[in-house]
Amino acid sequence: MTTATPSAPTNKLGFTKQDYVGSKSTLCAGCGHDAITAQIINAAFESNIEGYRVTKYSGIGCSSKTPAYFINQGWGFNSVHGRMPSLATGASLANRNLINIGVSGDGDSMSIGMGQFVHAVRRNVPMIYIIEDNGVYGLTKGQFSATADQGAHLKTGAVNNLPPVDPCTLAIELGCGFVARCFSGNPKQLGAILKAAFAYEGTVVLDIISPCVTFNNHDASTRSYKHVKDHDFPLHDLGFIQYSEVEDVDIAAGATEHVTFPDGSKVAIKAIHDSYDPTDRFGAMKAIHESMAKGEFLTGLLYINPTQPTLTDVLNLVDEPLATLPESRVKPSAAVLEEIMQGLM
């Protein structure tokens, strides 16, 4: 099963990290998206994810290329612009055992795909929804997106006069039970959040600030590595404890708070600056808005409610995947048709 040398460390399923990689990235050298891909691979490995259960969805854009770069043992579906959420919705209904990862960009999700983002979140579709957010359309060579900050400059000198859409406050407003913002340049924080995301059952919204080295990394950019690094305010140090491995703790010393998932897994939180309660929905909204007003990126686990029923729960579906139910379980009998026909006579 594993293809690496015997010396490479394996996880509980016997896989090496190499078993979670995908094809070679074709993105620009230094692209923030590649750093995110690396963390997905790492988190899947460490979380003992069964690769065959993974499905990966994307729309159109640089970010949407990335599902090809991780977890080759899973099935990928690169679809049409802004419509990835409906694919994850359909496949998650067809097979409730799938682990669904959607990768989108700020253009794909906050402009053309806004409707599908909103409704997937509202339905609590079981999926990790990653927005690789660089504030710019890379693949079409550098136009503004809807998350670009007001007053931001393009390389060409063009200025964005319109206010941005914030995916995180929007997701919280829509009732999302797991909302986080990360910076692709902070792998430790991103890794912990991705592991927690794998343990969460409903929609996870991860807005990951991921600078575009080619079109949005110049001095006047508000999404450059330098700018984001200077304005990144991590809320806390996070550790994630999977239920099955409580002995294997990767937690910042002095963690003060725990959020417990239904399966017993825990997120351990150690506040960095002021204390921040990620289970307080209104408090989260307030803190995010205040930080945005100051031009800061508040990063970390912004809001969590571990017990929201997912779309699969709400529909009260049978326990097995619908896709492979045998004919005997889905085709009513001849007597049923006869009864219906009698009723129509």
């Binding site: 694919l87 919705t89 496949a91 067809a94 492979t324």
Partner: peptide, 20 residues
């Protein structure tokens, strides 16, 4: 769904995943 586009997405992905 929220519109016909999303309906079509659900249909195709579900079919892709093996559902009728």
């Amino acid at each position: 769904m929220e519109d016909e586009l999303a309906s079509a997405g659900v249909v195709l992905a579900a079919g892709w995943a093996g559902a009728r």
